[in-house]
Design a protein around this nucleic acid. Sequence first.
DNA 1: CAATTTTTGGCAAACGGTTGCAGTTGCCTT
DNA 2: AAGGCAACTGCAACCGTTTGCCAAAAATTG
Lengths: 343, 343
Amino acid sequence: MEPLGDARQDRQATLADVAAASGVATSTASRALSNPTRVNVVTREKVERAAAALNYHANSHARALTSGKTRTIAVLVSDVTNPFYFDIIRGTQQQLKASGYTQLLVDTEESDELEDGMLHKLRGSFDGAILAASRLTDRRLATLASEMPLVAINRQTRGVASVFIDTPSGIEQALGHLVSLGHRDIAYVSGPVTSWPNEGRWRALLRAAEQYGVAVRRVGPFSPKKDAGAAAADVVLNSGVTACIAFNDLLAIGMLMRLRERGVSVPDDLSIVGCDDIFGSDFCNPPLTTLTAPIEQAGRVAVSMLLARLDAQTAGAARQTATLPTHLTIRASTGPAQPERDQ
Amino acid sequence: MEPLGDARQDRQATLADVAAASGVATSTASRALSNPTRVNVVTREKVERAAAALNYHANSHARALTSGKTRTIAVLVSDVTNPFYFDIIRGTQQQLKASGYTQLLVDTEESDELEDGMLHKLRGSFDGAILAASRLTDRRLATLASEMPLVAINRQTRGVASVFIDTPSGIEQALGHLVSLGHRDIAYVSGPVTSWPNEGRWRALLRAAEQYGVAVRRVGPFSPKKDAGAAAADVVLNSGVTACIAFNDLLAIGMLMRLRERGVSVPDDLSIVGCDDIFGSDFCNPPLTTLTAPIEQAGRVAVSMLLARLDAQTAGAARQTATLPTHLTIRASTGPAQPERDQ
DNA sequence: CAATTTTTGGCAAACGGTTGCAGTTGCCTT
DNA sequence: AAGGCAACTGCAACCGTTTGCCAAAAATTG
């Protein structure tokens, strides 16, 4: 029962505790821990030792309150359900942790309102945000980008930094592949019209089709989910094409399942090309020919770009845009067109 | 150029701004917004209107600093790469958002140190945590649970709340299924020995095997990844069993791919049962017979339990443990044992 | 050795809320 | 009409850091 008791509760140690333990002022303790050059080395070591002994961890809220820095990055995806985003998340998570940041994961449920709302509600909880598949209008997006550090993935809008997976260029390759297999009438299985990459892929296909002198048509739109693949498969079958390119693998895999159910052989009766090369594209039945996208890398690059512009030193030199190439991975869902096929 | 300028910068509006705009003290404004019954309804409306007009959003850090509540829940997974966790994440995300919480996603990379470290470093950034697949020792876990609100998934330890997916019971069903198909010699393809469910599954299988009077052996351990399936497939093939149960679907799918490569027919030459029924189990080749686990629901339930014990009102009544049943989903990776099979 | 510059460390004021306590009001009793 | 009692609202302290500013100490210079 000492008169001036140690008062060392089991509650988290605060900076004041550390300062007291090392016999300096809190300001000095603060500097010793976060701005090492600002204090004498012996003082610093004293403080560091005390901090370690007390198992001190700075309260991130208190720190955020004054410094304005949270060391947290928000990652917005339109649907956590979609394996495409898993790879994005994996990439961002990895790079973020390597830089000592933490990740705030937000699902926007394909809603532009929710996206906008979350970004505002959470503003102050993060230093910057990565928008994977923004559903925002160009205008809104540009405004937002001027309000907070932002990097968009697969979305090119003037004034907002972005990393772009160049699937459109790949589309040309994919079409070339189909044409060389004898296909002349090809469908594009569309995703949501509000999806920026969806439109880009369609335009690229249109352009390439002209070049190759073959016919393409667009069916859909379909929700980019496995379940929607059933409807897509039926529509494509009815259209009488011999091959199709799907907005993404999820849709393509859904089609595969439905076609199997209907006894339609892939690739004998219909060739299918997917986009992205997500988890599962290699072991579905048949394995999917697809445009392999460096998804995880896109996540990493997005983080690097964002972090670069957060850092005052490098902010000026930070690049505005990065383009990542894709390539066609040929597996078993594409094959020669049946010559005597008729409706 | 009015003398007392509006001073309304474009920086985020603060509570003081709102208070000034509605002509009350900040304390009143605070109460009006967060403790509505404490102020007169007309005052409250006035404040609310001002807040809306100024697009006021409370600074979460400032709030966290005084109230100690962050309205953030940490979700720790051992590997964001694993589709099993996708479903967990989906479930937690969903339930968390429904309750107005945000999710802090942390990847512990299968490391107990990282898990422990993160939990401490981030303590103060979240109100509670959900541990999906903790690698911690019982002792450590119990200590942690006494320091912060915690709910573990698939991990039963005295003193820590948990939601348990009852795969062990399902194992019995799975074995019954295999036995009824004529299999008498069955392998368990083990996951990491530090994984709690892995051991549970093996014990359950051992118990069931005794009941059924058939032989089981354990091979492995293997990393619970698709790539490890190749090695697993080879080992299982060498062991001469006619059927196996894999620790999880990821491993099983990896085996499927390797067996196809080696020209071994599933289920004719080898029957395979997976666990969990993750994304992909239904469209791999052949579709996997597996123990379907309500993974997403587990995530939701974990959140409910955690939130219940966070709320002072319901904390006492919050349940300590929840058990979720699994069931066997028979697809095409299991079939009759080949009668005249010999090494 | 005095004058000047550079380190180093402390004080105290933020940051933006929450909350215990106390002071005002207005209304009801008697 | 005075006293009593709620119901409201405001004051001010506090949460745990960071940081501008200043003073003391140490190092450098002439």
